[in-house]
Amino acid sequence: MLEVSGLRVSYGGINAVKGIDFTVRAGEMVTLIGANGAGKTTTLKALTGLLRPASGSVRYNGEDIVAVPVYQRVKMGIALVPEGRGIFPRLTVEENLDMGAYSRDDSVAAGADRDRVYALFPRLAERRRQTGGTLSGGEQQMLAIGRAMMSRPRLLLLDEPSMGLAPLMVQKIFATIRAIAAEGVTILLVEQNAKLALEICQRGYVMESGEITLHDNVQALLANPQVRRAYLGEDL
């Protein structure tokens, strides 16, 4: 579904991503793990078109999408749950969700999807008239995921969904991600919390200083001493 090859991205004068290759097959859950500053977020920004790659190709369903503007990619089925959640602080919860469906022209079905998001996150339904800025971090993360789902994505990119959340909330968010995957949505998950990410995904790529240094299925990665020492916090 997604094939990235030779992707190089500079960001603020630094080469944040230095020629990486990876693939995500339809229906898969793949994670990109790595330390802060490894280039994970930059990679996602290149996939969504927020940053323009210096070179390399991003093929989505066989088509090179490097030249496709940001606002057209959501219509192709790519949605991002951004780092820091990116809620519109002065739009209501409901308006935030409606923005998620902005690219769709079937308002009736979008309304039904909104009800599904509310069913999934009853807390959002309770707060539908509140502005996004008044929500707690966990509620904002629910809203960000719900908003991304409103576009009916086929490929969902998640950037650090666990960041800044209480453990219980993290569990809930990850359970939700799993449920979304079970519906057939392909998932690329970027996480600093490698343990969590490796637990729910099938394959993983390890990123260090802008390069992919390791990739394998998650069982192999979880068993890899280097990964265990560097990302799972184990003394070996």
Binding site: P82, E95, M99
Partner: peptide, 24 residues
């Protein structure tokens, strides 16, 4: 209106509005 919501969204966070499919 749809235009109005898009205007407000773009004014609050243009990048994210773009991700939602808004031609900013």
């Amino acid at each position: 209106t749809r235009l109005g919501v898009a205007m407000r969204a773009a004014s609050q966070n243009a990048q994210i509005a773009g991700l939602m499919g808004v031609n900013v």
